[in-house]
């Protein structure tokens, strides 16, 4: 068991340090028919915004050498429809669900967080386990506090703040001061790739094994903060996970490995869980 929100009144106690990253498992159930999801500590949903977002035009994805760029433009049907469509499956999923909220106008963030936090189990508990607040790539440190405060105004759930990879430690410092419960590192940088079928460039967040080194660098930079760290980016082996944990991360999120080898992602989580179970 790990605790990702030790300062929070209810905490965020997870059965595994291996989570699934936002954007790689829909609203939580995409891989349910393929692998046993309960090996993961939690799943982070796709972005949820107050109003529907149509997303970017096609093409949205393009392969690169050992990776791909992806930009869906936060496509989602809006918080009301997300809750309508997925609350039942969240109840049945068998693992904690963390909602990903991209930074937005503070009022909208508050309303979105409030709507998500008010979804309850039949027993009257909050159905969602936490909120992950995603910061844009170009975030100024003084903006972080406003966004975190906006989420806190609408929700009492633990708040994980996802920082851009390569962001300054000042962003992490701001998130700590804003009383975030954990830091997630991080949102990948942008890349561009040429899609021959469309004869055009595709711009989006870059995913693939190369991210591991960038995230590891950032984890080491902020390892001194007294806050749980979640490392996300480029995990393709148990060694990748242990490196993050040794560098100071409390948990990790698996991303693109799910696309290329869902069974391997499952096996990694299982191996890590078994190893931690066996360790004194």
């Amino acid at each position: 068991m790990i605790e990702l929100a030790p300062r929070h009144k209810t905490g965020l106690n997870l059965s595994s340090p291996v989570l699934i990253a936002s954007g790689f498992c829909g609203y939580g159930q995409s891989y349910q028919r393929l692998i046993d999801m309960t090996v993961f500590g939690a799943v982070v949903t796709q972005p949820v915004t107050l109003r529907p977002e149509r997303g970017t035009p096609q093409p949205r994805v393009c392969e690169t050498t050992a990776g791909f760029v992806l930009n869906t433009g936060l496509q989602n049907p809006g918080v009301r429809k997300v809750i309508q469509a997925h609350r039942k499956s969240w109840e049945r999923l068998g693992l904690p669900v963390i909602a990903h909220l991209p930074a937005d106008r503070p009022d909208d963030l508050t309303r979105t967080a409030r709507a998500l936090s008010s979804v309850q189990t039949p027993q009257g508990d909050a159905l969602l386990a936490a909120i992950e607040l995603g910061l844009p790539l170009e975030t100024a440190p003084d903006e972080v506090e406003d966004w975190v405060a906006a989420v806190q105004a609408g929700s009492e759930l633990p708040i994980l703040v996802k920082l851009p990879i390569g962001g300054y430690p000042a962003l992490a410092e701001s998130a700590v001061q804003a009383q975030a419960d954990a830091l997630v590192i991080g949102t990948p940088p942008l890349g561009t790739a040429y899609a021959p079928a469309y004869r055009q460039m595709v711009k989006g967040h870059l995913f693939g094994p190369a991210l591991h080194s960038l995230v590891l660098h950032d984890i080491q930079m902020v390892a001194g903060f007294d806050l749980p760290l979640v490392a996300v980016g480029g995990i393709h082996s148990t060694a990748d996970i242990y490196t993050f944990l040794q560098a100071g991360a409390t948990a990790v999120q698996i991303d693109s490995l799910l696309f290329i080898d869902p069974q391997a992602a499952y096996q990694l989580a299982l191996d890590v869980n078994n190893t931690l179970l066996d360790s004194p």
Binding site: F24, G26, S30, Q58, P59, V61, F68, L70, T72, L258
Partner: peptide, 15 residues
């Protein structure tokens, strides 16, 4: 005509 990276509705790239 569109790439299908995940195949299971996980990424929304084939909308």
């Amino acid at each position: 005509d569109l790439p299908l990276p995940c195949g299971v509705g996980a990424c929304c790239s084939c909308t």
